[in-house]
Amino acid sequence: MSLDFLAGFTIFMLALIMVVSMVPGLLAGLESSGIDYDAVAYRTGVILVEDPGWPVYPPWEMKTGAYKDEIERMGLAVSKETPNILLSTKVDAFFNDTFFTEEDYRGKAIFGDIPYSYNISLKSGSDLEQTGDPLPLGGYGYIRRVVKIKEPGIAVINDSFAPQYTAPSSDQEFIVRLNFSKLLDPTIGAAYRIDPRTEPVNVTITDFGAYLNRTDPLVDNATLRTVTFWKMDPTRPIPQFTKIPFSYGTVDSNLYTLHIDGTPTLHSLRPDEKVFNNISLVLKPAATSVFTLDQNSILDIRFNFGDTPSRTNITGIHHYDYNPANVTIPALSTGVLEVAIW
């Protein structure tokens, strides 16, 4: 070991140490979230806000547990033509994190090979929906999108309709009629459309006292026997209403909910229950999809009351359509969707 070798090696080592110490400084600006995380957050934001997801019909949000694998992509937009306008049923389905696992969110909304951590939230007014891990202090990719949320319409039949929908010695049958060719009219923008195939139909009869047969002053209720669904296809040669085969006797809150007099009890569609004040029926899109309806069909929801002697004078047809007196469509509400990826 000569002194000269020592000198040469020391110079080499010193230079090596200098170079090695430079390398982390070279990487410092790049190893932060700046690059990939922001791009992934942006992409996730675009998928959620500007895309209705896949499959479109029947829409992904209606897939139940066994068919979850058929969901390719979870998008929240009402349609491809309406970016930033989200459908509330899609939003509710998306933020159901007991149904979707972390893997589902990574595979159907975030994409990419790396198992990113994420936090996705949607705030509208004071409502906050959130999924994912709590945010770290910094170093995450982020995007914020301002959106509008479309809520389903509701038909409230209160006492102001009573003169129209009552007749002495009526047949005790009340019909709510949905004419799909009018509802799905392409001149109505997708953001304002009533589409029972993707949104629930809500029929609420209130102030039921106004519909009672008051010839006997002691009558304060009537018995709701059945609620049935009928359809007609006007393009057929001899169009007529046929009763849709359906499990009317079983309670299934995924298909419909029927509440009577505001109690939390779920009734079947053959309730045989006394109605004192109100009836609320919500028909979910999952049910409408098994009715095999197309864009020309007419769907009837028929409420049949039956008492002898008759205790209600209710009758007539209520059209579930774009007339604001018949169906209240809530205004679009503003919200903010945030995606954080790290």
Binding site: G8, F9, F12, A15, L16, V19, V23, L26, L27, L30, G34, I35, D36, D38, A39, Y42
Partner: peptide, 30 residues
């Protein structure tokens, strides 16, 4: 010793190449 220096230099070049690519990714996405 020269060979070692050369190897380090080469390694550094490859590292730089990769870093350059990643910087480009960030820039092109934005």
């Amino acid at each position: 010793i020269v060979l070692m220096g050369l190897l380090t230099a080469l390694a550094l070049f490859f590292l730089a190449l990769i870093i350059n690519q990643s910087a480009l990714v960030g820039q092109t996405t934005a």
